[in-house]
């Protein structure tokens, strides 16, 4: 039995310690906002925050998350910056199918917490681990800038 702190709640998880956090969240806890995309840390759909650090839950065993503060997409709106990111996503109509956007929002929020006024190069670096097959990258970039209060587009 492993106890994890997920979105500020202690939750007991009855799964083997090497189970990836992704599947514990989705199948055991029922937090399905964190998505499966590749299972090999290649697409970013499963991104959560562990003590504020963007982390790929598909390759993070639950044993490695013990004692850490896990935040998922379901709770990121309680964070001031997370909420700003979500609002920017809505105001610019970023999502198409929406499936990858949980991971995109977790990545963008982590970026803005670290770097409140990111350059395009910062955005490229922080966001290139997240694949969007629908192709919403231009709007994601614009939404990050909007959430950051950057009005000038720097190319």
């Amino acid at each position: 039995m492993t106890t994890l702190t997920i979105n500020d709640k202690p939750i007991k998880i009855d799964l083997p310690a090497d189970t990836p956090l992704l599947w514990a969240l989705r199948d055991f806890v029922g937090l399905t906002g964190t998505k499966f995309g590749c299972g090999i840390a290649s697409c970013g759909a499963c991104k959560v925050h562990l003590d504020g650090v963007p982390t790929l839950s598909c390759v993070t065993p639950i044993s490695a998350a013990v004692g850490k503060k896990i935040v998922t997409i379901e709770a990121i709106g309680q964070d001031e910056i997370g909420k700003k990111v979500q609002d920017a996503w809505m105001s610019l109509g970023v999502p198409q199918c929406g499936y990858c956007q949980s991971g995109q929002i977790m990545a963008a929020t982590a970026l803005l917490k670290q770097t409140p006024k990111p350059t395009d190069a910062d955005i490229d670096k922080a966001m290139s681990g997240n694949i969007c097959r629908c192709g919403t990258y231009c709007r994601i970039r614009a939404a990050i800038k909007q959430a950051a209060g950057i009005s000038e587009v720097t190319v």
Binding site: G33, P95, G98
Partner: peptide, 27 residues
């Protein structure tokens, strides 16, 4: 008009095929 499912999509509430959960379900 904004995307009808947009708010659900940005908050993780949107339900895709892979998200279905039924009582006593197998995987």
């Amino acid at each position: 008009v904004g995307i009808y499912d947009g708010q659900d999509m940005v908050t993780g509430r949107a339900q895709y095929g892979i998200d279905t959960r039924l009582k006593d379900m197998f995987y």
